[in-house]
């Protein structure tokens, strides 16, 4: 509430109460993301979580190749940019050199589920103690809307112009379910940010993943179903709807795995 003078006018001497501010985990700069893209929301959730956990000054971002390749311009934290798909390998070394740091990879579906499939699986297998934010928008955004391993059957993309055919390209890969089978993966959740309610749940999942990392749990990953209005050829509103009505049907939301918390010596 703003203070008022007896005459009901704002006093120029008094500062208005701050009701919204950019989180200290983000730089105060416009992003290059398209209108309706979910990267901005996801960036903010991660940054808020890191700030709320009070670990911003010891957090290291390992950014991928894809639309979020410039994430270092937006997050206010040290960063290593990885080659396409290799973020889990880079993060493995970063976390092992700085075990007290909070390390996370931020990867898209092409990066994580296609070219970097081996790296993410083996990082999870080893139980590497970093967190992966897996942004699954079922398409290659940066290169102009080509088919991803998570593209839905029938979905039209630049390289599946007749719709993805299961017979030709296989059915989309559910990475989170697959990674959850590995003992080293301690927390696996799939969330979305297409509605305010989902955003709240997404933030809670991201916070859980980072909190587990701080406790020294093994590998943690949060898959975020995300809209790519440009790549999908939809309006932002239609894209949000597509997330809810199509993506979620194939990629159901929820906590896929939350291993019992172990107590670690170190």
């Amino acid at each position: 509430m703003q203070d008022k003078t007896s005459k009901g006018q704002l006093s120029v001497q008094q500062t208005p109460e701050k009701i919204f501010a950019i989180t200290e985990g983000l730089q105060d700069t416009p992003t290059h993301y398209c209108p309706g893209c979910h990267h901005g929301v996801i960036h903010r959730l991660v940054a808020e979580v890191v700030a709320e956990l009070d670990v911003l000054n010891k957090t290291i971002l390992v950014e991928p190749v894809g639309c979020s390749v410039l994430a270092h311009n937006y997050f206010k934290m040290d960063c290593v940019q990885a080659a396409h798909g290799r973020a889990p390998a880079v993060a493995t070394a970063v976390k092992r050199v700085h075990p007290d740091a909070v390390v996370f990879t931020y990867q898209g579906d092409g990066d994580l589920a296609a070219i970097g499939c081996a790296e993410i699986i083996h990082a999870a297998m080893r139980g590497e103690r970093f967190t992966t934010i897996f942004v699954n928008n079922a398409i290659y955004g940066m290169t102009g809307g080509q088919m991803a391993p998570t593209t839905l059957e029938g979905q039209v993309t630049a390289t599946s112009p007749y719709g993805r055919s299961g017979a030709h390209a296989g059915a989309p890969i559910r990475m989170s379910e697959m990674l959850a089978t590995l003992d080293g993966a301690k927390y696996v959740a799939r969330v979305a940010v297409n509605t305010p309610a989902n955003i709240k749940k997404a933030k809670a999942a991201i916070k859980e993943a980072f909190a587990r990392q701080l406790r020294g749990d093994g590998f943690t990953i949060v898959e975020v179903l995300s809209a790519c209005p440009t790549g999908w050829g939809m309006s932002p509103v239609a894209a949000d709807k597509f997330v809810g009505e199509s993506l979620m049907k194939y990629f159901p939301l929820g906590t896929i795995k939350a291993a019992e918390v172990e107590t670690h010596g170190a």
């Binding site: 290593v80 990885a82 290799r86 390998a89 880079v90 993060a91 070394a93 970063v94 092992r96 050199v97």
Partner: peptide
């Protein structure tokens, strides 16, 4: 660390070297 591939191992070197 024995990596899953040469690709992973060189990128682990990249990560460690980036950490100084």
């Amino acid at each position: 660390l024995q990596a899953e591939s040469e690709l992973a191992s060189i990128n682990m070197v990249y990560g460690a070297a980036a950490c100084g």
